[in-house]
Nucleic acid binder design. Structure first.
Lengths: 67, 67
DNA sequence: TATTTAAGTCAAGCTTACTTTACATAAAGA
DNA sequence: TCTTTATGTAAAGTAAGCTTGACTTAAATA
């Protein structure tokens, strides 16, 4: 699962800690998701989408998607 | 988290067991998600969206969404 | 040089997603 | 009536998401 969190953070001038606060998760969770350590839960993905006013698909890209 | 899985299953004439097979999860998992016992993981949500050729937002509705 | 800030990472623990096995119920059909 | 099919549910276990606390490194700056 790829994601555009790092870029979106940059565009919005947010640190990992600030984004974590906005999403109500820990800084380590944001870091782990950005680094691809694990995928966010669906509720967390919705929160991120809501925050950036994007769809989940805009932020997270399924790697198993048929090309 | 609400979802339209039951309706989509009906539209596609699928049993919970058949849908579970298509999503590579157990029948109990499909049942639990339909009944709102827990939310699917993000990868599973993507699989369902791919299967029904819909977006995640078409299938799953975030209840925390600002109305 | 010393300090601060952002990012990266690890370990241990808790919670949630998901599994297998098993049993119950209702509806439909032989 | 007996059996089959679809659904619902529960218990116990594993795996994944997420937490807190702590330490490290690099870059910026006083």
């Amino acid at each position: 699962m790829n994601n555009r969190l790092k870029v979106l953070r940059a565009e919005h001038n947010l640190t990992q800690a600030q984004l974590a606060d906005l999403l109500n998760v820990s800084r380590q969770t944001v870091n782990a998701i950005e680094k691809g350590k694990f995928d966010p839960s669906l509720p967390l993905a919705f929160k991120a989408a809501r925050l950036f006013k994007l769809t989940i698909e805009d932020i997270f890209q399924d790697e198993e998607a048929v090309s």
